[in-house]
Design a protein around this nucleic acid. Structure first.
Lengths: 243, 243
DNA sequence: AATTTTCATATGTCTTACAATTAGTGTTTG
DNA sequence: CAAACACTAATTGTAAGACATATGAAAATT
């Protein structure tokens, strides 16, 4: 594990890359303790602050954790799906907001991915997932609900649908696509009539899931996508007209 | 933008979180220059190394870039899909290898997501994407190809399929699912007969895409998934028997 | 034996300093 | 006058040393 002092890249970036590679290729295994900062600075022939910057880079990616004290140090993290979620969501959100991705494109991706989960979720959903979906539908019908709370409930509903597939890899990937849409959804004002239509489609989805009918679930998702796209188009059109 | 000195969390983590939040909620916009390290250390009332550790955390997530020199400093990055790919792939790969995700689960997720792209890709694929797919099929038929090269070509084929949908959000999400499978696929030994079957299915997919037949594309993907699962099951079974 | 104290070790933070890079500025020179 | 050049100031990159703080383990004490 060596670094090139002539490399124009920052030493801390090089050191971080070297350690990251060691983790990815299995040279460093989960829960293994890295050498202390002082030892690393000797090994790489750099100062301790430089080593620390490298370790902070890795910590930012949840690849290591640090612990103070006598038996402390930096340890290789077991990257859990739970820990990876926030990262994935932040990145997805920024990708949408910084790259002028249209609402239509993001929405299309989201529903395409959800339809991918539909047959699996219809097949495997537990009573728990179904109950969550029904509960969120009920919440969405409550009077006095703000648009933001409505959107948050919408996200919770769809995540229950996705989690119903019982595949952590799918849940992880979908989390990014679904949650990243929330800021875009929050730009929409939902009238009572809009909400009623969405709730009706949610009910269709929940019914199809309950009946373990994957095809019907997909169809209902397609209808919901169309509804969402139409709604967004009208909102953006009226907003454009006003300005 | 403040931090709490009584917070048990590292100051650099708090500072990084504060700046990240400012980027996510739009307080800091793309290409905006952050205050210099010296100014930040005054604002947050910490030392420069601490500020630097915070900035390195953000740099590790591609949220900022730094530039040396007179007009240098730290700038908010436009998070591009290209820059986010490697991150997404590394994270997905580690999630699979560190969480005892079975081959079956990962494979199921991958093909479910690919099927989500199939109708869109069949509808929109350019001649370019089709040509890439045909070229990779041809490469896969070359004699003397190593298993690793075969897998790499397989990934390239599937990425062309996904990119054909012309939806960057889908391409981004799929990159993680497809690329992260590669280490798992590399554990498989492909006999000449295995390869022939896979190539035949790839050809079916390319034909369906060329005919812009989304249903046929999905069906071919389902067949390929079944083939891959069967193949993997036999490989792992014989490996288990040997040991 | 249980509790407290001490101690060694490691990370967290601060201070100061210098090196390297780079845009702008001023000066010299053709 | 214009162009090349040297200088300057600002900023990040790296280094070295020190102290603060947390923490587990060993030693001392009750």
């Amino acid at each position: 594990m060596k670094i090139d002092p002539d490399n124009p890249a920052d030493l801390s970036a090089q050191i971080a890359a070297a350690i990251r590679d060691a983790i990815v290729d299995g040279t460093l295994i989960v829960d293994e303790r890295l050498p202390s900062e002082a030892e690393l600075s000797e090994q790489f022939e750099v100062s301790r602050p430089t080593v620390r910057e490298a370790l902070k880079r890795l910590a930012a990616q949840s690849l290591i954790r640090t612990q103070r004290g006598a038996t402390g140090g930096a340890f290789v993290n077991r990257l859990s799906f739970e820990a990876a979620y926030p990262q994935q969501i932040t990145t997805s959100t920024l990708l949408l907001s910084m790259n002028a991705v249209s609402f239509g494109t993001a929405c299309e991706a989201r529903y395409a991915l959800e339809r991918a989960c539909a047959p699996l979720s219809a097949d495997r959903r537990s009573a728990d997932h179904l109950a969550t979906m029904r509960a969120e539908i009920h919440r969405q019908g409550q009077p006095g609900l703000t648009d933001e709370a409505f959107c948050a409930s919408d996200v919770a509903f769809h995540r229950a649908l996705v989690d119903g597939a019982g595949n952590p890899v799918l849940s992880y990937q979908l989390a990014g696509a679904v949650e990243a849409m929330q800021p875009l959804m929050n730009m929409i004002t939902f009238t009572a009539r809009d909400r009623a239509r969405i709730i009706a489609l949610h009910t269709d989805i929940a019914d199809a899931i309950e009946a373990q009918d994957g095809v019907a679930t997909s169809a209902a998702l397609t209808a919901l996508e169309a509804e969402t796209q139409t709604l967004a188009a009208s909102v953006f059109a009226s907003r454009a007209a006003r300005s």
